[in-house]
Amino acid sequence: MARAKSSTVKHTVISDFKEITKMRLSLSVVFSSLAGYLLGVETINIQTLILLALGGYFMVGASNGFNQIIEKDLDALMKRTQNRPVPSGRMSVRSAFIISSIFTLLGIIILYTINKQTAMFGAISIFLYACAYTPLKTMTPIAVFVGAIPGAIPFMLGWVAATNDFGIEPGTLFALQFFWQFPHFWAIGWFLYDDYEKAGFKMLPTGKKDKGTAVQTIMYTIWTIIVSIIPVFGFTGKLQLSIVAAIIVFILGLGMLNFAIRLFKEMTAKAARQLMLASVLYITLIQIVYVVDKFIN
C-alpha cells in the first residue's frame, strides 16, 4: 500500500514538473534551435548539440515557470489553466520560483559554454517573455508582437550556437519564425477567446473575433511564406534553398494560407483550431525541409 502511494506522489511531482516547464512546448522550441544549429554548422559537434538542447530546454522552462508565477491568479480564472501546479495550490510560488531561477542559471551557464552570444540571446528571451510579454497580455494586443520576439529566437539561436556570429542568415531564420507566430497565436486567441476574456487577456489584434483579425491573420501568413522562400534567391549568405526545396516550402505555405482563408470565410472556433494545428505542422516541416535540403545539396 505504501509503495502504491509513493508511486502516485512520484507521478504527481513528475506531472507538475512537466506542467510548470510546459514540456511539450519546451521540446518544440529545442527542436527549432537544433534545426538552426544544423543549418549553421559545417561539422556537427554532438557535445554542442546536447548542450544546446539542455540549455534551450532550461531557458524555455524558466520562462514558462516565471510566466505561471506572475499569472497564477489569472490562470485560476481560466478552465484551460486552472489545474496548473501553482494556481491549483499543488506547488507553492516559492517552489516554482526556485525551480525557475535554477533553470535560468543552468540555461545561461550551459549556453555560455557554447559561446557568449548564444547565452546573451537566451537571457534576452527569458527577460522579454517574463518581464514584457507576460504583463502586456492584459494591457494590449501588442503583447503578441512583443512575445513573438523571444518566440522567434530559438531558430536563430541554433545558428548563432553553430557559428558564434549574428548576420543575415540567423536574421532570416528569426524573421521566418517571427512572422509565423502571428497567425499561430491569433488562431489560439480565437478559439480560446472566451477563456482568455475571463482573465482579461487581449490576444487578438482588433480585440475581437472579427474580419479585421482574420484579414491580419491572412496577411501575416503571406509574410511568412515570402520570408520562407527568400533563401532560394541567394540574398541570405550561407543560408540557401534549392529550387525544389523552395517549391516544397512554398506549397506548405499555401497549405497554411488555405486554413487562414478558411478562418476568414467561416469565422468559427473550429476553423481557428484547424489553423493552429496547420501552423504547428507547417513550422515543423519547414525546418525539416531546410535541414534536409542543406545536407543533400
Rank of each mutant, 00 (worst) to 15 (best):
Lys18His: 14
Ile46Phe: 12
Ile283Pro: 04
Gln68Thr: 02
Ile226Tyr: 04
Ser228Ile: 09
Leu157Gln: 04
Gln240Asn: 15
Ile168Glu: 09
Phe185Gly: 01
Phe295Tyr: 15
Phe201Gln: 02
Ile283Gln: 02
Gln117Met: 14
Ser63Leu: 03
Phe145Met: 14
Ala175Pro: 00
Ser242Asn: 06
Phe233Ala: 07
Ile218Val: 11
Ser7Lys: 14
Met267Arg: 08
Phe66Leu: 01
Phe259Lys: 14
Phe250Arg: 07
Glu71Asn: 00
Ala152Pro: 00
Ile229Glu: 03
Leu173Ala: 09
Leu204Trp: 01
Arg94Lys: 14
Glu266Ile: 12
Lys137Ala: 00
Pro141His: 07
Val289Gly: 04
Glu19Phe: 05
Ala175Ser: 06
Ala199His: 07
Ala152Tyr: 01
Thr206Trp: 05
Arg94Gly: 14
Thr163Ala: 15
Ser92Lys: 10
Phe58Arg: 03
Arg24Gly: 12
Ile109Lys: 12
Leu173Lys: 00
Trp190Phe: 10
Pro150Leu: 10
Leu49Met: 14
Ile226Pro: 05
Met91Trp: 05
Ile168Cys: 09
Ala187Leu: 08
Asn83Glu: 15
Gly212His: 06
Ser228Val: 11
Arg24Ser: 14
Ser26Val: 13
Ala4His: 15
Ala35Lys: 02
Ile226His: 00
Ala214Tyr: 03
Leu136Met: 12
Arg273Cys: 10
Thr213Glu: 06
Leu51Glu: 08
Pro154His: 08
Asn83Arg: 13
Val280Ala: 09
Trp223Asn: 15
Lys5Ser: 15
Ala272Glu: 07
Lys238Gln: 15
Phe97Gln: 04
Ile44Phe: 07
Ile108Tyr: 02
Ile243Val: 15
Leu128Cys: 06
Gly55Cys: 06
Met267Glu: 11
